[in-house]
Write a protein that binds this DNA or RNA. Structure first.
Length: 378
RNA sequence: GGUGGAAUGGCCGAGUGGUCAAUGGCAACAGACUGUAAAUCUGUCGACGGGAGUCUACCAUGGUUCAAAUCCAUGUUCCACCA
C-alpha cells in the first residue's frame, strides 16, 4: 500500500508521471485535486466529480472538526462514507488555518490556541489533535500539522516556522505511528522555508530525514512572485527523493500547474477553480475570462472550444454570463464544473505528454496560448 | 367635484435655506480571488477637464433670498380619502 511508481520522466525538464497506490484506488500523477473543505467540493456532486475524472479530493481537519465534529464523522463511518466519495481523500491538517486564521490564535511550540471562526469558542490545535482527527476522518493521505509562514516574512520568522514545522512533524509522525492505521492512511511531511534557499534546504533535509511516504511543499502561493515560487521548486526538485510523491500545496493557477509539473511536482490542490467558478471567472486554454463582462452578453460561442466538459459542450458564453449576472446557482455550478475539469485536464495532458516524451512541447504550447494580463510577469 | 399628500440622479429612496453633484440600497460597468471565515470582496457610477475647476441638475414656470432640492405662487402629473 502507498507505493509510488515512477512511470516516466521528462528528459529535459523535471516532469514526472507516476502512480500512487492508496486504499481507495490508484492516483495517476501528475494530478490536480479538487478541494472539498467541508466534505463537499463546493457546487459539485460526487457523481459530477467522477465524471470530470477527479481522482482524489481534499477535506479539511479544522473545518470538519468544528462541523460536523468527530463524533458524527465517526458514527458515519468516516469521511468517505459520510460524503459518499469512494475514491481517495487527502485531508489537510489544519496547519493552513494556523496561517489563514492567524488573528484568532496564539501559537507556541506546544500548540495553537485558537478561537473558532464560527462562534469564537476556544479550541486547541496540535499535532496530536490533528492526527487524531484525521484518523477519524479516515483519509487516505493525512498531512503533518505544520506552520505555514506568511509572505513576506523575515528570515527569522520563516526560520521559526521551519523549526516548529519540524518539531511538529516529529510529533505528528510519532503520534500517527502509535495511534493511526498506517496500513490505511499515509502521512505526508510538509516542507516550509518561505522563499529562503537555506531554509528550504534545511526544512527539506529535516523533514525527509523523518521518512514519510510523500512530501509536500507548503508556504508557497501565499503572495510571492511566480519566479520565486519556481525557484524554490527547482531547488527542492534536486533535493526531494525521486521515489516519493511531491505535493505542492495550494497551487492551482494554470500556469503554475504546468510550471510546477515541469519542476517535478506530482500533486496539486487549489480552491481557485471552485472559488473563481463561484465568482464567474473561468480559465480556458487561451487564458482567463471574467464572465461577468459585458463583452460576452451576445457571445454565443462556448467557454473554451477545446474543452470536453459538460459546460463547454452544451452552453454558450451568453447564457453563462446571464446566469452569472442573475446570480443563479447553476452559473456557479457550471463555472466550477468547467474550471475543475480544465485543471484536471491540464494534469492529464501533461501526464500523457510526459509518457510520450513530448512534455517540453506541451509546456511551450500551453504557455504560448494562455494569456493573462495580470500575470504577465511569467 | 371636494380635501389632504407626493413629485430627487437608470430604479428604489434619504435629505427640508448655505458645509449638496446630493446619504443608503439596487442595477450597471470594471477589477480581485492559489493547502476555502469567500455563491465573497474592492473600485467606478451627471457632463467636460490631467488637475484646480467649469457647466448642467432634485416635475415645470415664475418669485423670495447674498444663497433654494429645501421657502412662496401658479401649473402639470400621481396617490389617498370623501362625495
Amino acid at each position: 500500500m502507498f507505493e509510488f511508481k515512477l512511470i516516466a520522466e521528462c528528459k529535459t525538464t523535471g516532469a514526472r508521471a507516476g502512480e500512487f497506490i492508496t486504499p481507495h484506488g490508484v492516483i495517476k500523477t501528475p494530478v490536480f485535486m479538487p478541494v472539498g473543505t467541508l466534505a463537499t467540493v463546493k457546487a459539485m456532486s460526487p457523481r459530477e466529480l467522477v465524471e470530470i475524472n477527479s481522482q482524489i479530493i481534499l477535506g479539511n481537519t479544522y473545518h470538519l472538526y468544528l462541523r460536523p465534529g468527530n463524533e458524527i464523522i465517526s458514527k458515519a463511518g468516516g469521511l468517505h462514507e459520510f460524503m459518499h466519495w469512494d475514491k481517495p481523500i487527502l485531508t489537510d491538517s489544519g496547519g493552513f488555518q494556523v496561517f489563514s486564521l492567524a488573528r484568532l490564535q496564539k501559537i507556541t511550540d506546544e500548540n495553537v490556541m485558537c478561537r473558532s471562526h464560527i462562534d469564537g469558542s476556544q479550541l486547541i490545535m496540535s499535532p496530536e489533535w490533528s492526527m487524531t482527527t484525521q484518523g477519524i476522518l479516515g483519509s487516505d493521505i493525512a498531512m503533518c500539522f505544520d506552520q505555514c509562514c506568511e509572505y513576506p516574512a523575515t528570515h527569522d520568522k520563516a526560520e521559526e516556522a521551519v523549526r516548529r514545522t519540524t518539531l511538529w512533524a516529529k510529533r505528528s509522525k510519532n503520534f500517527f505511528m502509535n495511534n493511526n492505521d498506517s496500513s490505511r492512511q499515509a502521512l505526508f511531511g510538509i516542507i516550509q522555508g518561505s522563499v529562503y534557499d537555506d531554509l528550504r534546504e534545511r526544512s527539506a533535509d529535516e523533514i525527509i530525514n523523518l521518512d514519510f511516504p510523500g512530501y509536500a511543499i507548503g508556504g508557497l502561493s501565499v503572495g510571492e512572485s511566480h519566479a520565486a515560487m519556481y525557484h524554490s521548486l527547482e531547488l527542492l526538485n534536486n533535493i526531494m527523493p525521486k521515489d516519493k510523491p511531491r505535493y505542492l500545496m495550494g497551487v492551482g493557477y494554470p500556469l503554475n500547474l504546468v510550471e510546477g509539473i515541469a519542476r517535478g511536482v506530482d500533486m496539486f490542490d487549489c480552491v481557485l477553480p471552485t472559488r473563481n467558478g463561484r465568482n464567474a471567472t473561468v480559465f480556458t486554454s487561451k487564458g482567463r475570462l471574467n464572465m461577468r463582462g459585458k463583452i460576452y452578453a451576445e457571445d454565443f460561442s462556448p467557454l473554451d472550444d477545446e474543452c470536453d466538459c459538460y459546460t463547454c459542450k452544451n452552453f454558450t458564453r451568453a447564457y453563462l454570463r446571464h446566469l452569472a449576472m442573475t446570480g443563479e446557482i447553476l452559473g456557479a455550478r457550471l463555472f466550477s464544473w468547467h474550471n475543475l475539469r480544465f485543471s484536471i485536464r491540464i494534469a492529464e495532458q501533461a501526464r500523457e505528454a510526459i509518457i510520450n516524451g513530448t512534455f517540453p512541447k506541451f509546456l511551450e504550447d500551453f504557455n504560448a496560448k494562455f494569456h493573462d494580463d495580470n500575470h504577465s510577469e511569467d
